[in-house]
């Protein structure tokens, strides 16, 4: 009884829907993708296909949207994951660290069908973190004196050279987590975490694809990696 009393106090009735349940963030992949317009800038989680929101990507591939600007470490594999969007020429520009694992990206780039901006992996992940954390960028020693730092501001701090990196933000972030609760608190699975937690902080609209949705309270506060305030919508893997 006491537990019930406390939870009523902590979750006042006004945040509950008509039937006394909190409004769910759960939508279908189709509904999620309908929000995305051509020309959008989208962050997509994953290290290759590991930790990539494959159902959301598949729904995007079914849609008519094009001219997308994708921020992702890689662009999938030929015909897999984001590789499908490349093959269907839905991607106008890609920002990431390693695209050579998909020969179709190399081909599209050489055919001038797609622009590519390359960042060292640590610079890219930190730029996304900075974007979500309200920072105007940062100075990193990585890439000083290399091709990647050409045209970037260089500065010497305490005798060491650094280059300036602007933050990265996006219109949408499509992330993949293992489990969400009804509020949108997320936990990940093993190395499928990778870029997802940062991307969840750095976009106007954040959609999390998850394997499972559980009741609020079933994930321990100590375990939660992404607190729910970052998450706008949840879709179930394979869910339509």
């Amino acid at each position: 009884m006491l537990g019930f009393f406390i939870s009523e106090r902590l979750y006042p009735t006004k945040v509950y829907g008509e039937e006394g349940k909190r409004m769910s963030k759960l939508i279908t992949c189709e509904e999620a993708v309908k929000m995305i317009k051509s020309g959008s800038r989208i962050m997509v989680g994953g290290f290759g296909l590991v930790g990539a929101p494959l159902s959301l990507i598949a729904a995007l591939a079914q849609s008519e949207v094009k001219d997308l600007e994708i921020i992702s470490n890689n662009l999938g594999e030929p015909g897999k994951g984001l590789g499908v969007l490349v093959r269907q020429k839905q991607v106008k520009k890609a920002i990431g660290s390693y695209f050579t694992s998909n020969p179709e990206v190399v081909q599209s780039y050489q055919n001038q069908e797609m622009e590519v901006e390359l960042l060292p992996q640590g610079t890219m992940s930190e730029a996304i973190r900075a974007g979500g954390a309200g920072l105007g960028g940062f100075y990193t020693p990585v890439s000083v004196g290399t091709k990647i730092a050409e045209n970037k501001e260089e500065r010497t701090i305490a005798g060491k050279k650094y280059v300036f990196q602007e933050p990265l933000k996006a219109n949408f972030a499509l992330v993949k987590a293992n489990k969400a609760d009804q509020l949108g608190n997320l936990i990940y699975n093993k190395s499928a975490r990778n870029f997802n937690p940062m991307m969840a902080t750095a976009a106007d609209v954040v959609i999390a694809e998850v394997d499972e949705v559980v009741e609020v309270g079933q994930i321990s506060p100590e375990e939660i990696i992404t607190p729910h305030l970052y998450i706008d919508f949840i879709v179930l893997k394979g869910g339509n």
Partner: peptide, 8 residues
């Protein structure tokens, strides 16, 4: 088209 974590 690829640098990955080499520089870091």
């Amino acid at each position: 088209l690829g640098v990955g974590g080499a520089m870091d």
